[in-house]
C-alpha cells in the first residue's frame, strides 16, 4: 500500500500528535540535566521543576515594592492592547473590505492604495509611531493596527468579491438597495471569514505587541521578557513564553468556537 493511502488508527494518531511535544520536552530535560550536572548554578537551561516553582511564584507572589502581582498586571495590559488593536483592525477590515468588494468606485480608488500600504513593513514604521503618538498606549495599539489591517482589508475585500454574482442580482430583484445588499447579504456572509482572518492575524498581532512592548513600556508580557533578559532569568522568560502560547491558543480556540456557534451555516465551507 502506498504511504499516501495509509491512515493512522485513532490511538496511533493521538500518539503521533503527542510525539513532537514529548520529544521536545525530553530533549530540553536532557540538555538541562547535562548543563546542571556540569554547573549547578547554570541559568541558561533551568530544570523543569525550577520553571514550575518560578511560575508558581510569579502567579501568586506580589511585587516586593508595590505588592501587585506583576504577572497578572502584565497579562491584563497586554491583552487590553491586543484586544484594542485587533478589534479596531477588524472593524476597519470589515468596513473597507465591504466598500472595496461591493462598490466599483471604492475599488478603483482604494484597491491599489491598500495593496501598496500592505507592502510597508510595519516595524519600520514603529519609530514614526513613537514620534507621532508618543510612548504611551496609542503607539502600541497603532502598531498592531497598522500591522494587520492591510491584510484584513484585502482578505475581506476579496471574500466580498467572491460572493456569487447571482446572489447580488437576486437581492436587487427583491428590491434591495446598495446598503441592504451590504448589510443583509454581504456582511453576514463575510463575518465568519473575518473571524477566520482574525485567527490568522493573531500571530502577527502578538509579534507587533511584543516588539512594541520590548522597546518602550513599563508593563506588559513583552516588556517583562525583555526586562528579565538582562538578568538571564530564563525561568521567568520561559514561563512567560509558555503563558503567551497558552493565551494565543485559547484565543484561537475561542474564535473558532464563536464562529461555529454564531455562523453554523458557514461550517461546511470553512
Amino acid at each position: 500500500m502506498r504511504w499516501i493511502n495509509r491512515k493512522p488508527a485513532r490511538p496511533l494518531a493521538v500518539l503521533l500528535a503527542a510525539l513532537p511535544f514529548v520529544a521536545l520536552l525530553l530533549a530540553y530535560m536532557v540538555a538541562s540535566d547535562l548543563r546542571l550536572a556540569a554547573n549547578p548554578a547554570d541559568k541558561l537551561l533551568p530544570a523543569p521543576s525550577t520553571i514550575m516553582e518560578t511560575a508558581q511564584r510569579l502567579m501568586t507572589e506580589g511585587d516586593r515594592r508595590t505588592g501587585r502581582i506583576l504577572f497578572w498586571h502584565d497579562t491584563a495590559k497586554s491583552l487590553e492592547r491586543l484586544a484594542l488593536g485587533v478589534g479596531l483592525a477588524g472593524l476597519a477590515g470589515i468596513t473597507f473590505g465591504l466598500l472595496i468588494g461591493l462598490l466599483p468606485h471604492a475599488r478603483a480608488m482604494l484597491g491599489g492604495f491598500v495593496a501598496a500600504l500592505s507592502l510597508v513593513p510595519p516595524l519600520a514604521l514603529l519609530p514614526i509611531l513613537f514620534i507621532v503618538f508618543g510612548l504611551g498606549e496609542a503607539s502600541k495599539i497603532m502598531l498592531i493596527f497598522i500591522g494587520i489591517t492591510p491584510f484584513l482589508i484585502r482578505d475581506m475585500a476579496s471574500r466580498t468579491a467572491e460572493i456569487p454574482r447571482e446572489q447580488l442580482v437576486k437581492a436587487q430583484t427583491l428590491g434591495a438597495s446598495s446598503l441592504v445588499v451590504a448589510l443583509r447579504v454581504a456582511l453576514p456572509q463575510i463575518m465568519p471569514r473575518l473571524i477566520q482572518a482574525l485567527r490568522l492575524s493573531l500571530g502577527p498581532a502578538w509579534l507587533f505587541l511584543i516588539a512594541a512592548e520590548a522597546i518602550a513600556s513599563d508593563l506588559g508580557l513583552g516588556y517583562r521578557i525583555f526586562l528579565v533578559r538582562r538578568y538571564l532569568a530564563m525561568d521567568v522568560i520561559l514561563t512567560y513564553v509558555i503563558w503567551i502560547t497558552v493565551l494565543a491558543y485559547l484565543m484561537d480556540w475561542a474564535l473558532r468556537a464563536l464562529s461555529r456557534r454564531a455562523y453554523p451555516w458557514a461550517e461546511t465551507n470553512l
Partner: peptide, 29 residues
Amino acid sequence: VVFQRYSVFPHMSVRDNLVAAEAFATPFG
C-alpha cells in the same frame, strides 16, 4: 430571477429567505 445555482441566501434559514423577499425592499432590509 432564478439561477441554476446560488439563487438563495446560504446564511438565512429557509423561512428567512422568504421573509427577506419582503424585507429587502425596506431602507435597512
